[in-house]
Amino acid sequence: MLYIKCPHCGMRSQNEFSYGGDATIKRPELGKEISDQDWDNFVYNRKSLRGKHWELWQHISGCRQWIKVERDTATHEIFNTLKANEEISL
């Protein structure tokens, strides 16, 4: 079971969180024209990376905040966690 540092609550076990997918995906702005391809990329197309990547988790059984977690998908090592409003520096 992963041990995730919630930026608000501190170290907590994985079973307090729910997974939220790729954290680098940006929702297209409302009301803006967007091509089918770009929309598909936003809604469906995800890379299944091996290695370091940023993902979203929600601390549902804690502070209910969405957080950003940098994790290695192969080793489960967690390098960094950020609050929802903090920018990822890639």
Binding site: S18, R27, L56, Q58, R64, Q65, W66, A84, N85
Partner: peptide, 17 residues
């Protein structure tokens, strides 16, 4: 009920802070 709350929180915290 639980999913809708998470859904709203997602947009408020991440998309439209």
């Amino acid at each position: 009920a639980a999913n809708v709350l998470s859904h709203l929180e997602y947009y408020l915290q991440l998309v439209w802070p």
